[in-house]
Amino acid sequence: MTYRGRAALQKVWDARAAANFMGGGAGSGLIVFAVAGDARGFAFDVLLVAGLALIGGGLLSVWHELGRPARALNVFRHAKTSWMSREAIAAALLVPIAFAAIAAVPGAAMLAAFAAAAFAVCQARMLQAARAIPAWREPLSAPLLVVTAFVEGGGLFFALSPWLRVGDERLLVFFGSFVLLRVIVFLVYRRALANVVPQAALVALDRAARVLNASTVVSLVAVAIVAYGLTPEAWTFAAASIAGLAATAGGAYLKYALVLRAAFRQAPALPHLPARGRR
């Protein structure tokens, strides 16, 4: 038997940190989808710059949270074990590669996709390595974050599709499968936490589940409408856009919930109680 104290919500990473996970996930996912969706020309350039801007915005946001922002470059000093260093390195590599891709350097686009994916993985592992937070350190948190990064990025990709005219039905279905996968991973993740995190964390996650479910339903219905050709051609992009927006919004809320609402610290726990004198 273990006697557990009350767990407290972590307060040291605030909305600025959450914004980094939101921006970083969506941005890296967007770059991946820009490459996977075979966007070209202006659309490709816009998508990559938007992806970089999201990642950069997230990093800028979290930079504001640093206690010593002037020393930010020290972040690169511990790639050996720190996923934060690795995240920074991935971001640093991504920027020139992405610009190379924009400049149409051969092979750079694929490399940019890999770098963006690497960034998403680093972010996901970064959260998972924070071992004080049971909801984060659960192994499934990393795949969940990676999948939702692709969903959020894909979501933005399709959200922008009416204007950029990118993507096709196959990619949309592929995206839809990720949306479905995300909710499945989340459910498994949530189940794994059932006896691990405090009730308040589960309440927060369940609220996130409701949002995620709603966004998944909206998203998948829109994908289905497009996939089964249930909408006039002119409305296809709009439907895809709705599918994308809903999925991205769901992902953003998930990050918010994960970073700010479900992030209860490890509670003090005693496997034994003291006897306090002879019984």
Binding site: V12, W13, E65, G67, R68, N74, M84, R131, W136, R265
Partner: peptide, 22 residues
């Protein structure tokens, strides 16, 4: 002199032993 105050360690410590004051 090296710490950047990212507080990653704060959320990594299962004993809630670390603090950052701004």
């Amino acid at each position: 002199d090296v710490c950047i105050g990212c507080a990653y360690c704060v959320v990594a410590c299962p004993y809630d032993a670390r603090t950052k004051v701004t």
